[in-house]
Structures are given as C-alpha cells and as structure tokens.
Design a protein around this nucleic acid. Structure first.
Length: 489
RNA sequence: GGUCGGUUUACCGAGUGGCUAGGUAGCGGUCUGCAAAACCGUUUACGGCGGUUCGAAUCCGCCACCGACCUCCA
C-alpha cells in the first residue's frame, strides 16, 4: 500500500511519511469527551478533524479501526469540592444518578456528532465499562515497580520511571522544571513527588462512583482509561493517537509513561494534536465558561451569535483552517464560511447539468492531483478547499460558456467533488426542501412560466411583483436567456 | 516564572527563499429591462529592528505583543 501521506508527529515535531505498523490495517485512538455537560464548539474540532482523517485513511484503502473513548468516570477537581468526581458533583446538583447524567450528555454528544456528519468510530468504549482492564494495568505497572501504594491509593512513580525512560518527551517537559513548578494540590502529601500521578484513588465517603479493587474501594486515575482501552482494542503498539493540544501534557505524557512502564515499549507511532478554538483570542473551554454549545450554534440561541449556523457551516468553518492552527470564532468568519459553502455546493449542482464540449480548456486531471497532494500534506484541508474552489470556477465558467469541458472531464469533476467534498471532507447538502414535491414544483413552474410571458410583454412592474411575492416565500427567480429558473433559498 | 507556539492584505485563513493560495466583504466592469447568479479586474499583506543572501513575509539574532501548557480541559 504505497502512499505519500505525511502526518505531523507531535513526538518528533516534524512531518513523517505515514507507514502503518501492519498495513493494510490502521489503529487509531482519539481522546473523546468527558460527558458532564453539552458539547461545545471546541468538541467539534477533534471530532471533525479526526473524522476527516478516518475518512481519508479509508479512501486510501486502509482498514481502519477507529476507537474514541467516552469518559464517564470523571476527573478530580481542585476547587472547593476537593477530590470530588465531576460527574458526581453535577449529579447532586441535578438530583440525578451519575449514570443518568452520563447518559444525558452522551446522547447529546452523539446527536451533535451526527449533526456534524461524522462517521461513527469503530468502537466507542466507556471508561466505566473497563474498570477491570484498568485494575489489571495498574497491577502490571506495580509489578514492574513503577508505582507504589499508599493508603489505598496507587501512584505512578515518575522519578523512577524517568531513570530508565524519558518522561516529558512528548510535551518537551524537563523533570527538574516540573519539580519546581508543580502546584500544591489535594492529596499531594501522599505522593513521593508532586509530579507523580494517581493510577487508583481511594474513594472518600461522599464519592458515589466507586469500584472495588485490590487496594481500596475507589476509582481509576485520570489518565489510565486511555492506556487500558487503547491497549485492549488496538494492541500494545498502534499507529495513531489523536486529541486536543491541551491534552498533550499531562494526559498523553502520562499515557506514554503508563504503557511504557507496563509493556516496556512506546505505545504510539504517530501522535496528532489539533489546536484550540479561540474566542476573543482565548481558548474556548468549559472550565473557562466562555464556550458556546453546538446546540446553541445550531439554533442561534446565544448572546454572541448574530444568527444560527448549520452543522455543515460549522464543519466547513473548521475545515477552512488547518488543524494545527488555532481558529478564532466570530460571526463574520462563520458568515463567510456559510457563503463559501453555499457557493461550493451550488457549483456541484451546476456540474450536474453542464453541457459537454469536444475539448477542454482547463486541466482537470492536474486539479485532481493537487487535491490529493493537499490531503497528503498533513491533511491540509484549507489548501484542498482552495483547489476545490478552482474547480468551482471551472464549473461556473463552463456554465457561462467562457471555458470548455469534455464529457470525460465533466465526469472526472463529478468524481472529484464527490470524493473530496462528500467522502473525505464529509460535507453534505443540508437543505432538503420540498424539491421533490412534484405538485409544488409544477405550481412554481407554472408561476414562473406566466411571469416569463408577462416579462416578454415588457410588463416590468407585474413581473417584478411576481418575483417579489415568490421571493417572500423563499423562492428565488433567476432570469436566463432561455427563460426563468428558480430555486429555494 | 519555566516550556512551546503565534503575529499575514477590510475580515477569516493558507503558504513559502524568487512564481496570483482560497473564502467573505467592498469597489469597478461584463451580462441584464431591472434584479439575482456567474465571470473578469481591483484594494499600502506579511509585528518592529538588525543580519545572512543576487533575492526574505519565508532562514538567523534581538525586541514587542498575543496565546497554549505547567491544574480538569477537545
């Protein structure tokens, strides 16, 4: 399976040619959400980006197993509710069972993912369903001597680990710096060193989510689930691990340490990190409270939103920026994305009714090649889109008669747009208006026909009135030489 | 404070040692009874100061500003 697909590997900090460990199979793990509130714009980014990666790898004919976890065990907080589980805290606020909260927001997440037209991952494992695997992994790490137990909790011994392995290689941390800079958190006194992290925590009396273990009744540490589940479904070593840049340290660093300590080798060949979405120049995050949920965007129900934006507008907006750059939220940018997407999709419609010529005045195969190269270059979707808009120009010009396309080139363009726009970028046509209703269609056709007659009689005020009235109900009339055309807005 | 990254034309956003990225908006034009669409053209681009080079927005150094991570986070 030859390809020129290069991926920027966070581990090496450079682009590398993608070579799967066991072609044609590819193992891909992406950090999913902690389900304790509705997903926001920030969650859409890795979902869309890694969906695009999944789609592209599939297009390259790899057999991909895409695993995305659901964190439903919760993480510790360091505010007033020390050591309390995030999910549990929310549960008490809403008088719900923790798993009820999980279900609610999981449903919300999955629905939004569908809205965004992301494909389902091959497996979506939940942390709560893999407690046994996590306990087994802790045992392995203990056996290898890289963890220690204190008062029913188990911690990872970073100092010991770093004597043999390089802790900090992914994030560029130096242990001495970490030592000097780690803040004082709850439970620090138990640990040998402040940078040690929990593998298992003994539950405090008020902690509801708890499981028995050899050490105590408690819950697994924050980084363990990903190591346990990726190993279970993808093996000790797998191809791609993705996630947000904010997870690079400590989460992914700890994952590397856990797996390496237990198995003796690096778990991941290519680490990929998507950058953040910013709002007013600052990261959008639940913890910062400056987020807009996806449902709010889709309905327009948020003070910062001038209007509602469709899921595909959001998807297009995200794809217009490269995944390793920050992308700044603004109404202006979203409106621009909306228009751009419309232009793209409209051209695909125009393509369907294009009349072929005997010769072509543009080079369609070259365009295809450029699109391919853009994707091969570390998933450069903005460049791909720029090439696709070149194609849009070909189509519109051919439609205007200023360029020519052969039947073969028209077919090639159709294939090109189908593959890159729909299959790979995962965009789709959203407004499934009553185009298919024959009765309505013929009524509008009749109105347009009558207007054409009136127009031919140069009764401009009446023909303008008809256009106006039809416009009011969302029908746009476009006068052509051959007569009137109409479309729904 | 430490580590890392960014600063691009009206806005968003690519890119790169010499060749128009692209989208959106504005302006002018073609078409048109008008409009819409489309097409063509267009608007002091590359944070500042030095350096390397025949040539730098692109490489190097310093400075300024912004951000991310160092704590749960997509």
């Amino acid at each position: 399976m030859d390809n020129n697909f290069t991926i920027y590997n966070s581990l090496s900090r450079k682009k590398e040619l993608f070579k799967p460990l066991h072609a044609p199979f590819v193992g891909m793990y992406v950090c999913g959400p902690t389900v304790y509130s509705h997903p926001h714009l920030g969650h859409a980014r890795p979902a869309v980006i890694f969906d695009m990666l999944f789609r592209y790898l599939t297009y390259l004919e790899y057999k991909v197993r895409y695993v995305r976890n659901i964190t439903d065990v919760g993480h510790l907080e360091n505010d007033a509710d020390e050591g309390e589980d995030k999910i549990e805290k929310k549960a008490r606020l809403e008088h719900l069972e923790p798993m009820e909260v999980v279900q609610k927001y999981l449903n919300s997440f999955l629905k939004n993912m569908q809205d965004l037209n992301t494909l389902h991952p091959s497996i979506e494992p939940r942390a709560s369903g893999h407690i046994i695997e996590q306990i087994e992994l802790i045992k392995e790490i203990l056996e290898k001597g890289y963890a220690y137990e204190i008062n029913g909790s188990v911690y990872f011994d970073v100092l010991k680990y770093s004597k043999k392995y390089n802790y900090g290689k992914l994030s560029g941390r130096v242990l001495e710096d970490l030592q000097a800079n780690t803040r004082t958190l709850d439970g620090q006194d138990e640990k040998k060193n402040p940078f040690d992290f929990a593998l298992w925590k003994k539950a405090t009396p008020e902690h509801l989510m708890r499981w028995p273990s050899p050490w105590s009744v408690g819950f697994p540490g924050w980084h363990l689930e990903c190591s346990a589940m990726s190993t279970k479904y993808l093996g000790d070593v797998f191809d791609i691990h993705g996630g947000g840049m904010d997870l690079q340290f400590p989460h992914h660093e700890c994952e590397i340490a856990q797996s390496t300590a237990a198995k003796g080798n690096e778990p991941v060949k290519y680490w990929m990190h998507n950058n953040m979405i910013t709002i007013d120049g600052q990261k959008m995050a639940r913890s910062l409270g400056n987020f807009i949920t996806l449902d709010q965007i889709f309905t327009g129900d948020h003070p910062l939103l001038l209007q509602a934006y469709t899921p595909m507008t959001i998807r297009f907006f995200l794809l217009q920026a490269h995944y390793r750059s920050t992308v700044d939220f603004s109404n202006e940018a979203l409106q621009a994305a909306e228009k751009g997407l419309q232009k793209l999709l409209k051209a695909i419609e125009t393509l369907k009714k294009l009349k072929p010529s005997l010769t072509s005045t543009v080079d369609v195969p070259a365009l295809w090649k450029k699109c391919h190269e853009a994707m091969d270059d570390d998933l450069n979707s903005p460049i791909l889109l720029s090439h696709l808009f070149e194609g849009v120009k070909y189509i519109n010009s051919a439609n205007d008669g200023t360029e020519k396309l052969t039947a073969a080139d028209i077919e090639l363009l159709k294939k090109l747009f189908n593959i890159f726009v729909f299959d790979i970028l995962g965009l789709k046509v959203e407004n499934d208006n009553s185009y298919d209703d024959e009765f309505i269609n013929s009524v509008i056709d009749a109105s347009v026909k009558i207007r054409t007659i009136i127009k031919n009689n140069k009764d401009w005020s009446t023909s303008d009135l008809i256009r106006q009235e039809l416009n009011k109900i969302g029908i746009k009339i476009k006068d052509k030489k051959e007569g009137g055309e109409w479309e729904l807005e």
